[in-house]
Simulated scan of single mutants.
Amino acid sequence: MTSTPSQPYQPATDYQDRTSRQAFEQLVSVRGEGDEWDFKATLGYITKNHARVNLAKDALAFCNLPGGGTIIVGVTDDFDHIGLTDAERIDTTAIRRAIEKFIDGDFIVAAAEHKLADPATGEEKRYGVIHFRRRFAQPVLAALDGQIANDKPVVFRSGDILIRRGAASIRANSGDVRRLFANSIVHEERVRAVNELWSCLVEQRRLMGGVEYLFDILVDNEYPEAITRPGLREALGHLTEVRHADDVDRLQLRVSLVRPHIPEELYQQYRACAAFVGRLHMKAIWQRDAGVFLPWTELQNGSPDLQLQHLALALIPQDELNGYWTGQPTGDGTHRPVRPVIDAAERGVLKSINLVLRGLG
């Protein structure tokens, strides 16, 4: 029977960095094995039962680590870099098919091959990198007995929870099991809190009405005339500054109620993003009512809005923000669309959210 997941779907592309060239070079240079990584000279013939059972044992243990675990293939127990054989291929689909019947729970396999020159001979060799992790917070279990042959003892039994201890994949004891399920409960609360936070951020952006439309279509010389166009004023809606403040406070209250389950760094990023978007909205409301227009980068007196810039820098790299802030010169003036900068700010929050959902934040 397969476990019923209770966490949001997380795409496997979130884990490709674990099989990147940089990650490979960091691990392959290590002399020693640990909880989160292992070396194997070869995977063997993973169509054969003994190879499948041994690989499933390590996959089960790695999946029960918060961030998963990685196998480097082509390095011996003595840390000799022998590389893959000519016939051996690291194939994600083949690996999953080889082990999935042994695993009760949704899991992710990410794999890649990398080439590395032997320092002594200069010969280029291929190596494999395989990363395993569970998709959801609940621990994964062995779905059936892992037995290499009828006359051999079982490597693991159906229902076992395996963990990593040092370089070994072993059966969890009662203390390990309690910790795994306790961490699972904590993570579930975190996921619910993070979903609420993101929902509030999305709702605030939805409330912005025609703000993006306003800033995205205009250049400097159009401002005095365009702000009085009926269509543009209708797009901005009839929201007052007081109503806007009330709506923002309502969303902030929702986030405050789940704040104990949100990592502090993520909470501060949310606050910066919400304040940034809210300040843009207030600018648009004021300019609509006053019948004047200024770039979103400026205050009412025409000076740079340094507070808005500071909020943006909490989420957007300086060089990227500079491009949005300066704008694009055109024949008619300077075009400073605001949609890309809001997207960039929200990506900063989403990056932290993904870390939390993966159990790393």
Results as ranks from 00 to 15, higher is better:
residue 137 A to C: 02
residue 61 A to Y: 13
residue 59 A to G: 06
residue 152 K to D: 07
residue 106 D to H: 15
residue 341 V to Q: 06
residue 267 Y to A: 12
residue 95 I to Q: 05
residue 289 D to M: 00
residue 201 L to Q: 05
residue 99 I to D: 14
residue 27 L to I: 09
residue 248 V to F: 11
residue 163 I to Y: 07
residue 230 P to S: 04
residue 72 I to E: 02
residue 339 R to D: 03
residue 211 V to Q: 14
residue 340 P to W: 03
residue 175 G to C: 00
residue 308 L to N: 08
residue 13 T to G: 01
residue 85 T to M: 14
residue 164 R to G: 10
residue 205 R to Y: 00
residue 113 E to K: 05
residue 118 D to K: 06
residue 276 F to E: 02
residue 298 E to H: 08
residue 178 R to K: 10
residue 140 V to H: 05
residue 125 K to H: 14
residue 189 E to P: 00
residue 322 N to T: 10
residue 236 L to F: 11
residue 134 R to Q: 09
residue 57 K to H: 11
residue 148 I to S: 07
residue 352 S to P: 05
residue 2 T to N: 13
residue 17 D to L: 04
residue 57 K to I: 06
residue 187 H to K: 08
residue 125 K to F: 05
residue 35 D to E: 14
residue 358 R to G: 00
residue 133 R to F: 02
residue 318 Q to G: 04
residue 171 R to V: 05
residue 119 P to N: 09
residue 266 L to G: 08
residue 64 N to I: 14
residue 104 D to V: 14
residue 217 I to A: 08
residue 18 R to I: 00
residue 52 R to D: 03
residue 126 R to W: 05
residue 153 P to Q: 12
residue 286 W to P: 00
residue 17 D to V: 05
residue 212 E to K: 09
residue 219 V to R: 13
residue 56 A to G: 07
residue 10 Q to T: 04
residue 21 R to Q: 12
residue 211 V to N: 12
residue 344 A to K: 09
residue 149 A to M: 10
residue 126 R to I: 03
residue 194 V to A: 12
residue 240 T to D: 13
residue 6 S to P: 01
residue 48 K to C: 03
residue 253 L to M: 04
residue 193 A to M: 02
residue 113 E to R: 06
residue 291 G to Y: 03
residue 255 V to T: 11
residue 157 R to C: 00
residue 3 S to L: 15
residue 1 M to P: 13
residue 270 Y to D: 03
residue 169 S to T: 04
residue 117 A to D: 08
residue 273 C to M: 05
residue 257 L to W: 04
residue 21 R to C: 09
residue 250 R to N: 07
residue 353 I to A: 07
residue 288 R to G: 12
residue 32 G to W: 06
residue 116 L to F: 13
residue 216 D to T: 02
residue 275 A to F: 01
residue 285 I to A: 12
residue 100 E to K: 14
residue 49 N to D: 08
residue 68 G to H: 10
residue 352 S to L: 13
residue 60 L to S: 05
residue 206 R to D: 15
residue 333 G to M: 04
residue 304 P to H: 03
residue 233 R to C: 11
